Measured scan of single mutants.
Amino acid sequence: DETGKFLVLALYDYQEKSPREVTAKKGDILTLLNSTNKDWWKVEVNGRQGFVPAAYVKFL
């Protein structure tokens, strides 16, 4: 159920650099879980949760 969740689009490829991050490919649609940090947003992609740089994604 996606009610109340926001989707964001990956603008660039991002390769995770730590276990707390997730890899995303340009064009991926990610479920935004938390955007309270202006630099790192928590997302879910391909069943995995983790952080990506906020500058790499935008709201749909």
Score class of each variant (00 low, 15 high):
1 D>C: 15
1 D>I: 13
2 E>F: 13
3 T>F: 13
3 T>Q: 14
4 G>W: 12
5 K>S: 11
5 K>E: 09
6 F>H: 12
6 F>Y: 12
6 F>P: 12
7 L>D: 02
7 L>I: 09
7 L>Y: 15
9 L>Y: 12
9 L>P: 00
9 L>I: 15
9 L>K: 06
10 A>C: 15
10 A>T: 10
10 A>M: 15
12 Y>N: 06
12 Y>R: 12
12 Y>S: 06
12 Y>L: 09
12 Y>C: 15
13 D>R: 03
13 D>I: 08
13 D>T: 07
14 Y>Q: 01
15 Q>I: 15
15 Q>S: 11
16 E>P: 15
16 E>S: 15
16 E>Y: 04
17 K>N: 09
17 K>F: 04
18 S>W: 07
18 S>T: 10
18 S>G: 13
18 S>V: 02
19 P>E: 11
21 E>H: 05
21 E>S: 06
21 E>P: 04
22 V>K: 02
22 V>G: 03
22 V>Q: 06
23 T>F: 04
23 T>V: 03
24 A>D: 02
24 A>I: 15
26 K>A: 13
26 K>T: 07
26 K>S: 07
27 G>S: 03
27 G>Q: 02
28 D>R: 02
29 I>E: 01
29 I>A: 02
29 I>C: 09
29 I>V: 11
30 L>V: 04
30 L>R: 00
31 T>L: 14
32 L>F: 05
32 L>T: 02
32 L>E: 00
32 L>W: 03
32 L>P: 01
33 L>T: 03
34 N>R: 05
34 N>D: 15
35 S>E: 05
36 T>K: 11
36 T>V: 10
37 N>C: 09
37 N>T: 05
37 N>E: 08
38 K>F: 07
38 K>D: 09
38 K>R: 11
39 D>P: 02
40 W>T: 00
40 W>K: 00
40 W>M: 04
41 W>Q: 01
41 W>F: 10
42 K>H: 12
42 K>W: 15
43 V>I: 05
43 V>M: 00
44 E>P: 00
45 V>K: 08
46 N>W: 07
48 R>G: 04
48 R>A: 05
48 R>C: 10
48 R>P: 04
48 R>S: 06
49 Q>E: 11
49 Q>I: 15
50 G>M: 04
50 G>D: 01
50 G>E: 02
50 G>A: 03
50 G>R: 00
50 G>W: 05
52 V>W: 05
52 V>I: 15
54 A>T: 05
54 A>D: 02
54 A>P: 04
54 A>C: 09
55 A>F: 08
55 A>W: 09
55 A>R: 13
56 Y>Q: 04
56 Y>W: 06
57 V>E: 00
57 V>K: 00
58 K>H: 09
59 F>Q: 10
60 L>R: 01
60 L>C: 12
60 L>Q: 07
60 L>T: 05
